[in-house]
């Protein structure tokens, strides 16, 4: 390869590398969308995965148990008019707060009870699960013990047969012969 071409290639590489470094967004770098959503099929999940999913859902339920909005939840994405819009909304919230609290009070109690019920059911389910595991383990042990007993019985039975054969009347007496 000729020297000047090698140099040209090196130069081009440096240029491209510099441009590459300046791009922060990966999507721009590859000119393509890189992220997508993946639907999850809960039926395929293992026990541990289901447990962590349950924890995730429960913490979300706990987070949103109170339906009454607080002022920090009011924000705006608008650059210029965002601040006055937020200010007006917050004033409106302040004025109507007692009314909203009254209406949503029952909803909040209902939500709290639902979360408590879920937690209760989960604890119940865990206890039953533990019991089933213990029973399965015991059954496994019993199966192995049965196998050992069966083998021993076979041995005893074989010994008995042998003894019977040795002492049967038709068999010649060793000492006399």
């Amino acid at each position: 390869m000729e020297n000047n071409i090698t140099k040209e290639m090196e130069k081009l590489k440096k240029e491209l590398h510099k441009k590459k470094e300046e791009v922060h967004d990966l999507k721009e770098l590859v000119k393509n969308e890189i992220d997508k959503d993946y639907p999850s099929n809960l039926e395929d999940f293992s026990e541990r995965e289901l447990e962590s999913q349950l924890d995730e859902y429960l913490s979300l339920l706990n987070k949103y148990v109170d339906p009454v909005p607080d002022k920090t939840s009011i924000t705006s994405h608008r650059r210029l008019i965002g601040t006055p819009v937020v200010w007006i909304k917050r004033i409106f919230l302040k004025i109507t707060k007692s009314y909203i609290t009254h209406i949503l009070g029952k909803q909040k109690i209902f939500n709290q009870k639902c979360v408590a019920l879920y937690q209760n059911l989960i604890i119940h389910q865990k206890k039953y699960h533990d019991k089933i595991s213990q029973i399965e383990e015991r059954i496994g042990e019993c199966e192995v013990h049965l196998e050992v007993i069966a083998k021993k019985l076979e041995e005893i039975s074989a010994n008995l047969d042998q003894n019977r054969a040795d002492t049967s009347p038709g068999k010649p007496d060793k000492e006399n012969t």
Binding site: M9, K13, H17
Partner: peptide
Amino acid sequence: LAEIKRISRSKGIQAAYNSLLQAEVYLNL
């Protein structure tokens, strides 16, 4: 060179850079 520029326009800078890397290896540089 024209091919590298075309790749950069159509597939992005990374694809162009990758093509250059492949060329270096292919040409035993």
